[in-house]
Write a protein that binds this DNA or RNA. Structure first.
Lengths: 140, 140
DNA sequence: CCGCTGGTTTCAGTCTGGCTGTAACTTGCG
DNA sequence: CGCAAGTTACAGCCAGACTGAAACCAGCGG
């Protein structure tokens, strides 16, 4: 899991840490049959309900076909429901159910737990600047 | 490509930035028909030559079978060569060729370029603490 | 009203990168 | 000498993305 050290540049660290954390969170989420992209879709959908497959896909940066698969799974879990009839050309109106918000808060709890472990590794004083630095890279 | 903001926790940022950077670097590496795992294997192999498939796989955190695939590709590229005869039970001794070190330095240049872009986004004073913080999370 | 163009959902197939399972072989040790 | 552990090798599988194509809806110009 480690890698080709020597330098330990910021980019290298970000890539490997990203992968590692992703694996950790995905592993934990599997307990309730979901994954990071499910959490992502769920979060987008709670922040503004009624949005369509394609729109959701655009925001997540995947194709509508891929998003359809994850949403189908979320429907199977009973986490989201469609307010409009299914059908080929008709744009779908989606909403998260009560079970969906429960699942979502649980999943965010999982991420928070991992986040606590992560932050525990960095010096108290460094934490705010770490988050600030990451955030400024994120928005670009 | 963005995601389910609101909080913007460190873990969330690390996961999405990791994915984003990984995509960026992989995209650039594709120009010379390689990828991050090729770079990783190449780097491990340059730091101590003569190591075997399985050992390389262990260090990279993948199975020997997966490592075999990436090494086959590196052989096709002429970046690594095997000093021992191929064959079922005989442990392989691998080495990086001259073309391999050239490819490796080029690839590290690609990563450095991305790294420069990343660091450009964070305030001068924050850079050392960012790297230090990431490093301490990495080693755990 | 007609037709057309753009957007959307859906189905199907494909590709990639990892995995497991199994086989063949070597090596070292009791 | 035989056997267990380690290694390479081959095959098949699976998840998660993708492209391609089909069916359909909505709105607009003529």
């Amino acid at each position: 899991m480690t890698a080709p050290p020597g330098d330990l540049s910021a980019t290298f660290l970000l890539m490997t840490l990203g992968k590692r954390l992703r694996a950790r969170v995905d592993e934990a989420l599997r307990e309730r049959r979901m994954s990071l992209r499910h959490l992502s879709a769920l979060a987008h959908l709670t922040r503004d309900p009624g949005v369509s497959y394609s729109e959701l896909a655009r925001r997540a940066g995947v194709t509508a076909q891929s998003m359809q698969a994850t949403l189908r799974h979320l429907e199977d879990l009973g986490a989201v429901e469609r307010l409009s009839e299914p059908g080929r050309g008709r744009t779908a109106r989606l909403r998260v159910t009560a079970a969906g918000v429960e699942l979502s808060t649980w999943a965010r709890g999982v991420v928070s737990a991992v986040d606590a472990e992560v932050l525990a590794q960095v010096a108290e004083a460094d934490r705010p600047v770490l988050v600030r630095a990451l955030r400024s890279v994120f928005l670009s």
